[in-house]
Amino acid sequence: MSSMNGNRSAFEDEGKPVSIAILGAGNIANAMARTISAMSNDERYRNLVALHAVASRDERRAAEFANRFTIPVHYGSYEELAEDDDVDLVYIATPHNFHAEHAILCMRNGKNVLVEKSFTANREQADAVLGVAESTGLLCTEAIWTRYMPSRTIIDDLLLSNVIGDVTTVTANLGYPLTGVKRMVDPNLAGGALLDVGIYPLNFIDMVLGPQQLSSLQSSASFFETGVDAQSSTTLHYENGHMGVASCSMLGMSDAQGIVWGSNGYMICNNINNIDGIDIYEDGHRLSRHVDIPQQLTGYEYEVASAANAILDGETQCPEMTHEDTLRLVSLEDNIRDIWGMTYPFED
């Protein structure tokens, strides 16, 4: 990783936490505000991060948000937030199609960024964002919380212990009824199931199997009248013989399981969007072990702490979700949409 020299000592000399601002005031921004507020009251994090500001294009909405979470500063424009010299890290919480624009705005004003998934709407945008990150030497990382959670390390350790033998196949699914969320069916906002819901099964498979070369990719989807995907199924074949199957939907609720098949058994990870338990089965489908997941504040604290520590260490990316990881996943999303023949209006 490349780094910004001297950041650690500067923060330590001043004895201050990493000052965070939230760009956007929607549902995920509310979840992040609750998280950082909880971190400020937790002895593990209270000296690490502090919530400083929020911005919305609607100043009244920003003021209400700031009042709700006792945030010192609010802005009625994103430009004002980006120019605030007291901000160290900006969490980008706008719709997918705006992530690139807003991340670049912040970095060009000297701000590190934590960009909500999906990182961008396509690979072209991702390349532009990471190009600015490289030229500025600032932290730029994708906020897909499952990459940062303790459950990921627990799964890795279990597989390394050969508890189910040699891994052969990974399946993962996630579905929520989300048709009532306007932005989710809007192609101008990069709506559809893939970028919001489907990214979790794809990430689960990628985390278990690691970066591998695909030999073939098949996918099919059904679509809303607006042209965005409602649900889909994707099969990934890898050159080493592994296979992954990812399914997602915004029409109905799924069991949200991630299952790892092995030569001596299989592992079921319950709720891949926020794993709450792992069950290991031996040959004969006998449950041999259950593994609990540590209690969390909200689950988002791990990505915030990782980003803050990366800034303190002068790093430009987080080890849990490197730039290479982000580019691999956003390219996969592009390839899947290419199979469907689906584009967003702003791409035309």
Rank of each mutant, 00 (worst) to 15 (best):
E282I: 07
V260S: 03
G314L: 08
M107K: 02
Q212F: 00
E315V: 01
E124I: 13
I272D: 02
I164A: 00
I275H: 07
S247F: 11
P294A: 00
L194F: 08
A246Q: 03
N188K: 13
A63E: 15
N7E: 14
S249Q: 07
A128I: 03
S215P: 02
T171W: 08
E59T: 11
S288V: 12
L251F: 03
L89Q: 01
F223E: 04
I71G: 04
S249R: 02
N162W: 07
A63S: 14
N30R: 13
A31S: 12
L217M: 06
Q213F: 00
I259M: 10
L159F: 05
F98W: 10
F69T: 07
R183V: 11
G165Y: 10
S254Q: 03
A133L: 04
C106G: 02
V170C: 00
V73S: 06
E320S: 04
L287W: 05
S306D: 12
A66C: 13
F119W: 10
T136Q: 14
N162E: 15
L194R: 03
L174F: 08
I20Y: 05
H285R: 07
V129H: 07
T171G: 00
Q295D: 14
S247V: 09
H237E: 13
G131F: 12
G299S: 03
I28P: 05
I293F: 02
V132S: 04
G76L: 05
A128S: 13
L297R: 07
T35R: 04
N7Y: 14
E80Q: 13
D166K: 14
C106F: 06
D283C: 06
R337Y: 11
D58G: 06
V304H: 05
D276F: 06
V163H: 01
D86L: 05
T322N: 06
G265R: 08
S219I: 01
M39P: 12
N112D: 09
S233T: 13
R337C: 10
L209M: 14
V170W: 08
P17W: 10
T153K: 13
M4L: 13
K16P: 02
L236W: 06
L139R: 02
I104Y: 06
M149A: 11
G165Q: 07
I278A: 01
R46Y: 08
L327M: 14
A305M: 10
L195R: 10
R61C: 00
N240K: 05
N271H: 13
N47G: 14
A33Q: 09
D157T: 13
K182L: 11
V49W: 08
V87S: 02
A82P: 11
A63M: 10
D334G: 04
L287E: 04
T226C: 11
Q231E: 15
V304F: 15
G258P: 12
D157G: 00
A103T: 11
A190L: 09
P95W: 06
E64Y: 10
H323M: 04
S56R: 03
I278D: 05
L209W: 14
S19Y: 09
E101I: 10
G341Q: 09
L214D: 00
T179G: 04
M267A: 01
P201E: 04
L251R: 10
Y176W: 14
D196E: 06
D186P: 13
V113C: 14
C248Y: 15
K16F: 01
A221T: 13
A193M: 10
A308I: 08
L51M: 09
A62G: 15
A63R: 15
F204T: 05
